[in-house]
Structures are given as C-alpha cells and as structure tokens.
Computed example of a mutant assay.
Amino acid sequence: MPDAAPSAAAFPRNPGIDALRGLSILLVVLHHLALRIPLKQTALADFVPGRLLAALSWNGYSAVFVFFVISGFLIATHALGRWGALARIDARAFYLRRAARILPLLLALLAVLSVLHLAGTPDYVIAGAQQSLGRALLAALGLHLNWYEGVTGYLPGNWDVLWSLSIEEAFYLGFPLACLLLRDARVLFAALLLGAVSLPLALAALAGSNEIWQEKAYLPGMAAIAAGVCAALTAARVRPRRALAGALCGLGGGGLAAALLCGPWLWRALGNGTMLLLTLSVAVLLVGLHWRQQLAPRAGRRGLGWLRVQGRLSYEIYLTHMFVVFAVVALFRAAGADLRSGFWWYLPAVALCWALGALLARYFTDPCDRAIRRRWLRPPGPARSAAPAEAESAA
C-alpha cells in the first residue's frame, strides 16, 4: 500500500497534549538540575512546601513514563489516520517516518559526544572499567543502551538519556509487525492491554536486579507505551461525548497529579501499582484531550503557551538538555555561588534548553525530516503534503 499521507490539516496539533509533553520535559530538566543544585537547599525551601519542591525535583523518571504513554498514543493515532486500521499499516513507511524523525539528531548527538570524549572533556568521558566509546556507540545505535548501562554502569549524562530511546524504538521496531500479524483489532487490543496492566508485575520481577536495570529494563517502558496505544484505539473506537471528555480529563489529570505530588505515600500504599496509576491516568487523560480537540478544536489554546512550545520541542530538548545542565552547573560552581541562591540558576537553564531545542528544530531536525520524507516517502501521482513530524513523537 503506497504511503498516501493525509494533509497536515488532518493531524492538527492538540494543545493539551503539547502542554502535557511540555510538563514532562520540564520535569526531566528540573530533575537533572536538582541532582546537582538541590532545590531543598535553596532559599525556596523557606516558603515553598517541601512536598512541592520534591515533586519538582524527583519526578524525572515518572516524566519519562509519561512520555512513553504519549508516544504510544500519538503513533497509533496517526497510524489509524493514515491507514484506517493498524492491520493495514505500511511497515516501510512507518519505519521511514520514525527514522526521519529520530536518526538525524541522534547521529549528530553521537558524533558530538564522540568528539568530546576523545578530547577528554570533563562530564563527557566514558570512563567505566567495562565501557568504551565504540561499545557505547553500538549500544546507542543498536537500541540496547539501557541494557549496556545495566551491565556496565551509568554512562555520562548526555549518553545516559538515550536509555529511554532504546526502549521506545525497540517497541516501534516490533509494533508494525505485531499489527500485521495480529490482524484482528480485538486480539491486538487485548494483547496490548495485557502488556499495559502487567507493569507492576514487570517491575516486581526486576526486584532482584541491580538499580540501573530496575529503572531501565525494556518491559516496564513498553508496558507504558502499550497503554498509550490502547488509549488511541479506545479514542478512535468510541464516539466522543463532551461530558465524558471533560470527565476523563478531570479523572486522568487528577490521577497524574496524585502520582506526581504524592509519590512517597502512594508507593507505601500501592507499591509498584503507583506506576500503573501513573500510566493509566495519562492514558485516560489523553483520550479526554483527544475527544475535546475533536468536539471543540479551539478549546485549550489560551494560556500555557510556553509549556506547549516546550512540548513541541520535547525530542530536541530531551536529547540535548544535558549540554546546558553541565554548562550551567559548571558556571554555578566556578562563580562560587551560594546554594541558597541556587534556584536562580534554574531560570536561565530552562530557557537555554528551550532555545537550543528551538534552534535545532528550525535549522536541523525539521529540514532533515522534510528532506528524508520528500526523498523516500513521495507517493505516486501528484505530490501530497505530509503530516508534521513533531506531532507524532513524544520522545
């Protein structure tokens, strides 16, 4: 089946989902800053509740799982929009779209990191006893950097963020094949739902593993992505209703807020079920946001514009934000700044992460994406415009 892509207008951006992605990438950036400039040791602790500071500081891992759910939802939604059913997915076109979105920036990042390692730049040298540059490159390109870290230890920060990309792209490698093999939509949905709800069991099975593998194993991340795909299939199957859309937004948003703000208490009460609460809440919220967009396309477009922009740049910011984090932290230490005033350094760090992501999107990733699509995805007959790539990826 040729890749006859719908027009970009067929895939309008969803401001609510963009804002959710923006919140997620913000939490990742804040987490990596807080590891080096703890918010609880700044003057903010004098008047901001400790629970809120902790939520801002330590939800980076949870934010990645939010990304996983969103990514599964968007990929499945766009696949349904292009091919009508997942059983009719064009595997070649699917893989080329993923490659066009992911590979240009990933390859550029690996080239820069290799140069910095060879130059002996602090914070960028791969120094583990069992690690090497060549093996790290193979792991990043072979979609098993998470496993490589689990066996050999943490890599430098700019390499470490690639663990989630290994999980996400491994899922997408098998996703079209599963869709084509399990052609019955009900069987596919049942298999994905089983994978999604198995998240607590997958986490429990990892209890005897080392800390890195407990965090970065394949199955928990894939379970989160599966939850997003199930949400997309549900949203496409059930007729949207305004009242139900609002209720789902409230229910999913409330569950997400509880998971982010009340994590320690929930872990004591639910254990590994806390992560399932997180992923299912995001899935429910996505269905509500999707239906709200269908019923009221102009809804949710006021306010939080900066967060939506961050969401649209989430992939670029995610892969490159550690450059900014390391630079800002180095300046903070070189200036001999007091930890009490450390929170002020967060503001330029977040702004610079956004600026770097915006520059990369405008002058590198978007042009590369368009060029690859024009070269390899042009359908026969009159040229047709392709859906915007950034609307598909949540990485």
Rank of each mutant, 00 (worst) to 15 (best):
residue 197 V to R: 01
residue 197 V to P: 04
residue 198 S to H: 11
residue 198 S to K: 05
residue 199 L to N: 07
residue 200 P to T: 11
residue 200 P to W: 07
residue 200 P to F: 08
residue 200 P to Q: 12
residue 201 L to D: 02
residue 201 L to N: 08
residue 203 L to F: 13
residue 203 L to S: 06
residue 204 A to T: 12
residue 204 A to N: 10
residue 205 A to E: 05
residue 206 L to T: 06
residue 207 A to I: 06
residue 207 A to N: 08
residue 208 G to N: 05
residue 211 E to A: 14
residue 211 E to P: 04
residue 211 E to G: 09
residue 215 E to Y: 13
residue 218 Y to P: 00
residue 221 G to F: 07
residue 225 I to E: 00
residue 226 A to K: 00
residue 227 A to T: 04
residue 229 V to T: 04
residue 231 A to P: 07
residue 232 A to C: 10
residue 232 A to L: 02
residue 232 A to G: 10
residue 233 L to M: 15
residue 233 L to H: 02
residue 234 T to G: 04
residue 236 A to Y: 03
residue 237 R to D: 12
residue 237 R to W: 14
residue 238 V to F: 15
residue 238 V to G: 02
residue 239 R to P: 05
residue 239 R to F: 08
residue 239 R to H: 11
residue 240 P to C: 07
residue 240 P to R: 02
residue 241 R to V: 02
residue 241 R to T: 02
residue 241 R to I: 00
residue 242 R to P: 02
residue 242 R to I: 11
residue 243 A to Y: 02
residue 243 A to M: 10
residue 243 A to N: 09
residue 246 G to D: 13
residue 246 G to Q: 14
residue 246 G to S: 12
residue 247 A to C: 13
residue 248 L to E: 06
residue 251 L to N: 10
residue 251 L to H: 13
residue 251 L to R: 13
residue 252 G to E: 12
residue 253 G to Q: 12
residue 253 G to N: 13
residue 254 G to F: 12
residue 255 G to F: 12
residue 255 G to H: 11
residue 257 A to Q: 06
residue 258 A to P: 10
residue 258 A to S: 11
residue 259 A to F: 00
residue 260 L to F: 14
residue 261 L to R: 08
residue 263 G to P: 03
residue 263 G to A: 15
residue 263 G to D: 07
residue 263 G to M: 08
residue 263 G to Y: 10
residue 264 P to M: 06
residue 266 L to I: 00
residue 267 W to L: 03
residue 270 L to T: 03
residue 270 L to Y: 03
residue 271 G to A: 08
residue 271 G to S: 09
residue 271 G to M: 04
residue 273 G to Y: 03
residue 274 T to K: 08
residue 276 L to V: 01
residue 277 L to R: 05
residue 277 L to C: 04
residue 277 L to G: 04
residue 278 L to S: 00
residue 278 L to K: 02
residue 279 T to N: 14
residue 279 T to I: 12
residue 280 L to F: 10
residue 281 S to R: 05
residue 283 A to T: 03
residue 283 A to K: 05
residue 286 L to R: 07
residue 286 L to W: 08
residue 287 V to G: 06
residue 289 L to A: 15
residue 289 L to N: 08
residue 290 H to R: 13
residue 290 H to A: 15
residue 291 W to G: 07
residue 293 Q to A: 15
residue 296 A to V: 12
residue 296 A to P: 09
residue 296 A to M: 10
residue 297 P to G: 08
residue 297 P to C: 12
residue 298 R to A: 15
residue 298 R to W: 12
residue 298 R to E: 15
residue 299 A to W: 15
residue 299 A to E: 10
residue 300 G to T: 11
residue 301 R to W: 15
residue 302 R to C: 13
residue 302 R to A: 15
residue 303 G to L: 14
residue 304 L to M: 14
residue 304 L to P: 04
residue 306 W to L: 13
residue 308 R to S: 14
residue 308 R to H: 09
residue 309 V to P: 11
residue 310 Q to K: 12
residue 311 G to N: 04
residue 311 G to I: 03
residue 312 R to F: 11
residue 313 L to H: 07
residue 315 Y to P: 05
residue 315 Y to V: 07
residue 315 Y to E: 00
residue 316 E to Y: 04
residue 316 E to S: 13
residue 316 E to D: 09
residue 317 I to P: 07
residue 317 I to W: 06
residue 319 L to N: 01
residue 319 L to E: 01
residue 320 T to Y: 06
residue 320 T to E: 03
residue 320 T to M: 00
residue 321 H to K: 06
residue 322 M to A: 03
residue 324 V to E: 01
residue 325 V to D: 06
residue 325 V to S: 05
residue 325 V to H: 03
